[in-house]
Amino acid sequence: MSTDFRSARVALGARLRELRAEVGVNGKDFADRIGWQRSKVSRLENGKQTATEADVDAWAAGAGVPGQAADLRSRLKGLESQQRSWRRQLAAGHRPVQYRYVVEYQRTATMRGYEASVIPGLFQTPGYARHLIEANTALMRSLRDTEAAVAARMHRQEVLYEPGKLFRVLLWEAALHVVVCPREVMAAQLDRLVGLIGMSTAELGIVPLGAPLPLTPRHGFWIFDEERVIVETVNTELSYDSAHDLALYGRAWDGLNTAAV
């Protein structure tokens, strides 16, 4: 069993435990309520057993919140994909990961994104992308395939010229000042952002430093067609598709958008 799968299953178990706790009954009484063995309740809550759809439906009903069944089924469906470690994804280098994003972007019609410290790959110049990929290769100690990865990242940008698509991207102003490459490369990168003005498929908003904000900038995230959210951390890529998480990240994007120019 992969570490990613195990972590996601533990997270689902924690959510099940929360719902039981909200009812105010212990594990034994909850098991009696839904006609299970006490050991099954314990295994599910502690991520020792993989639940079925019937299990989470019964759990939601037993907790008196049948409306939570859809969210629990969504979490169950996402066990395999919810967390994907970068170490495992980059085992064959950066190029395969970049081409996976090419496919994901091609099948996306509308995207809302936010980045706090980096220009997103969709808008990167080859020079800027090259320095980022080299730095990440050194950090992750992964296979070095920089030029192939840069080419794949540039290929991803072809979606910007496809009619019917819309990419609404917010950047915290700090991302324009983080110098992760030589200054002349950064200057070209900033010029690239200016070139986005007027494109029908791209909207770029800058959240100014010092602007009053309804929430702290925190981490970057991407909402694909209001169906899935992708969050990247240093070691993991997280994917969420529950109604609760989509609404939460949607509100976060809306809040940042109110401060953007």
Rank of each mutant, 00 (worst) to 15 (best):
M1N: 04
D4P: 03
R6C: 05
S7N: 10
R9V: 09
V10G: 10
A14R: 15
R17Q: 13
E18G: 02
G24Y: 10
V25F: 05
V25Q: 03
D29Q: 10
F30M: 02
A31G: 00
D32S: 13
R33Q: 09
L44V: 01
N46S: 11
G47C: 08
T50C: 12
T50K: 15
A51Y: 09
E53W: 03
V56P: 01
D57Q: 12
D57R: 14
A58F: 09
W59M: 02
G62P: 10
G64M: 00
V65N: 07
G67V: 12
Q68E: 15
A69P: 08
D71S: 15
L72P: 08
L79S: 01
Q83E: 07
R84I: 07
W86V: 05
R88L: 07
R88P: 11
Q89Y: 01
G93M: 03
P96Q: 07
V97A: 00
Y99R: 15
R100L: 00
Y101A: 08
V102N: 04
Q106Y: 12
T110L: 09
M111V: 12
Y114R: 08
S117I: 05
I119W: 07
L122A: 03
Q124A: 04
Q124F: 05
T125G: 04
T125S: 03
T125P: 00
Y128E: 09
Y128K: 09
R130H: 03
H131Y: 12
L132C: 00
I133S: 00
E134Y: 05
E134R: 15
E134K: 13
A138Y: 10
L139C: 09
L139Y: 15
L139G: 02
E147A: 11
R153K: 14
R153Q: 11
H155D: 11
R156T: 05
Q157P: 06
E158F: 12
L160D: 02
L160V: 06
P163D: 11
P163K: 04
G164E: 02
F167L: 02
L176A: 09
V180T: 07
P182L: 06
R183A: 03
E184Q: 13
A187T: 13
A187Q: 01
R192P: 06
G198N: 00
M199G: 00
S200L: 11
S200P: 04
E203R: 14
G205P: 07
P208E: 03
L209S: 00
A211L: 09
L213F: 09
L213A: 08
L215K: 02
W222S: 11
D225P: 07
E226T: 12
V231K: 06
V231Y: 02
E232R: 12
E232Q: 14
V234C: 11
N235L: 14
L238I: 12
L248R: 15
Y249I: 10
Y249D: 10
Y249L: 05
Y249P: 08
R251V: 02
W253N: 04
L256W: 04
T258V: 13
T258W: 11
